[in-house]
């Protein structure tokens, strides 16, 4: 099995690693004058400025908090819906699925702008709670669509087994359902987290100046690429983490 390994490595390098090298080089470039292929001087200025001027610490913590909370909420809310969507194919199945998937199709900037209208009155604009709710609106359909594939008849069969062996409902959830859907649950959570983490338009309008990582990053792209690259590396961390977790899950099922 040498051949597939080689193709995989080549694909990974060409599609993923090689384009990203520029970020790493740029982030640590102190001086990088034009025709040179590599910087003349390396240093940590990019990170220093990111934390000093770019509010990187607040941006990372806000982004992290909002992503974790909105995705956590989305998973809790999507769970029962995914269960019943997977179990029944009633008359309303298609209509409900369409309704729940609709936010996926509408530009998040539009959703955010519309929500602001009410959030200003409710005192939610510019707060993390407001951002969590706005992100929840966008994240929920992603989480729901992934989670729906978790509840196959096999899971129901395993739950029946546990019922018939005297396991009460809460313990069934802990000992049977969650372990059985763990891979899909992880995938749904990762996807939801990444969708929230990457949100730009919603955070821009609803956040009203609250520092969030992508918002902090964008202005530096034209003005100071080194700072932009430093912030981008922080922005990249969850994606890498997601890849590591996904590959571990893949190895487990192999």
């Amino acid at each position: 099995m040498r051949e597939p390994r080689r193709i995989a490595t080549a694909a990974a390098v060409v599609l993923f690693a090689a384009p990203l090298t520029v970020l790493v080089i740029q982030a640590f470039a102190e001086v990088w004058r034009y025709p040179a292929l590599l910087p003349q001087q390396f240093g940590l200025r990019g990170f220093r400025v990111a934390f000093a001027e770019g509010d990187a610490a607040a941006a990372v913590s806000n982004s992290l908090e909002v992503a974790l909370l909105s995705t956590g909420l989305a998973v809790l809310i999507a769970w029962p819906a995914a269960r019943s969507l997977a179990a029944t194919r009633g008359r309303w199945h298609g209509a409900v699925l369409l309704l729940l998937a609709l936010p996926l199709l509408v530009p998040p900037f539009a959703t955010g702008t519309g929500l602001t209208e009410w959030f200003i009155r409710l005192g939610l604009a510019g707060t993390r709670a407001g951002l969590v709710l706005a992100h929840l609106t966008v994240v929920l359909p992603y989480v729901l669509l992934v989670l729906t594939s978790a509840f196959s008849p096999r899971v129901v069969e395993l739950e029946e087994m546990a019922r018939s062996l005297g396991t009460p409902p809460l313990r069934r959830l802990v000992f049977v359902t969650v372990p059985s859907v763990r891979a899909v649950l992880t995938a749904a959570f990762l996807l939801g987290f990444l969708v929230s983490w990457s949100q730009y338009g919603t955070s821009l309008v609803v956040g009203a100046g609250l520092p969030m990582l992508p918002l902090t990053l964008l202005p530096f792209i034209g003005s100071d690429p080194t700072v932009a690259a430093a912030l981008s590396l922080m922005f990249l961390v969850p994606a890498i983490l997601a890849l590591v977790l996904a590959s571990r899950a893949t190895r487990e099922t192999l």
Binding site: P4, L15, A229, F235
Partner: peptide
Amino acid sequence: HGRLVRSAFSLPVPVPHLLVAVVAFM
């Protein structure tokens, strides 16, 4: 091809759009 090659080709999926745009810009 097996899982390995397929997952190599799915690497860009979790990378945020903005990040790809930044990389493209650079």
